[in-house]
């Protein structure tokens, strides 16, 4: 474990050096994500200029849910972005062999290799929106609720990571699974809004099948109302652990099935 931390530190330091070298690159990436988010928010404000409440939530509450949903997303984006490359081209080009020849866990190596600072854009918007909306969102604040809420964030990020591990691992069998990651990851759109706006089938889908609802709406609902911590927070923990275990199983089976591509 200590060795893993040490390796991780070294790899991240390498990444940061690269970022310092290409400052313009980093700025473009972070600013791009920032503006991308700002536009999503403009959308909510335009809607609310016409209606007082959406599905029983007022503007600040919707903004709070939206902002919160960006935090786990950004955290995962920051730490595990290299999984996209596994799905898109590392396996297809035969470059995955590299990870197998090193004396560390290949999954750990893949993840540790990239530290994606573009995610700063998402994190900044998420935190900014929470700060903006929290005073007027009518939050349910007790020491316990805040602790539980903050605790849910890493688990919510783990849901993103697990989904990315599963979908990128498909590349071990089909060589390139970028489109599957894209497709499934894109469903995080559902996490930004209250699940009560969806019909039951969609609700079940985003709660249990591709559980993005646990990365945004449910934990945010807990801090907004203080209701049902067992489901809203406990669910995040349980679902993330279940999905993480499944993702590791699939990844390991994939590793066994991996046949190097290219020459």
């Amino acid at each position: 474990m200590r060795r893993a931390f040490k390796i991780y530190r070294i790899l991240v330091a390498q990444n940061l050096k690269r970022i310092m070298e290409y400052k313009a690159d980093f700025l473009t990436g972070a600013v791009s994500f920032l503006i991308n988010q700002a536009i999503g928010i403009a959308f909510i404000f335009i809607i609310f200029s016409q209606i007082p409440a959406l599905a029983g939530f007022k503007l600040e509450q919707i903004v709070f849910i939206y902002g919160f949903s960006q935090v786990p997303k950004g955290l995962d984006h920051l730490l595990t972005d290299n999984l996209w490359s596994v799905g898109y081209f590392i396996i297809r080009k035969g470059d995955f062999d590299k990870y197998l020849t090193r004396p560390i866990n290949p999954l750990f190596h893949v993840i540790a290799e990239t530290f994606q600072v573009d995610a700063v854009g998402e994190l900044a918007v998420g935190i900014g929106l929470i700060a903006y909306s929290a005073p007027n969102a009518g939050l349910y604040i007790t020491p316990l609720s805040v602790t539980l809420f903050v605790l849910a964030i890493p688990f919510a990020a783990l849901i993103y990571t697990s989904i990315k591990i599963i979908t990128s691992a498909f590349a071990f069998w089909i060589k390139s699974s970028g489109f599957i990651i894209q497709m499934v990851y894109g469903m995080n759109e559902f996490a930004k809004y209250p699940t009560t706006i969806y019909n039951n089938a969609v609700k079940l889908f985003v709660t249990y099948i591709v559980p993005f609802a646990f990365t945004g709406y449910y934990p945010a609902l807990y801090i907004l109302t203080g209701e049902n911590p067992l489901f809203n927070i406990g669910g995040v923990v349980a679902v993330s652990i279940v999905f993480f275990v499944i993702s590791i199983l699939i990844w390991n089976r994939g590793l066994k099935a991996y046949e190097s591509a290219g020459s």
Partner: peptide
């Protein structure tokens, strides 16, 4: 196909959002 399905998912999210609006 991946991009098309991604686009359709997005449409459905927006559909429900507008429905709620």
């Amino acid at each position: 196909i991946g991009f098309v399905i991604g686009g359709l998912v997005y449409c459905f999210v927006m559909y429900y959002l507008w429905n709620a609006v």
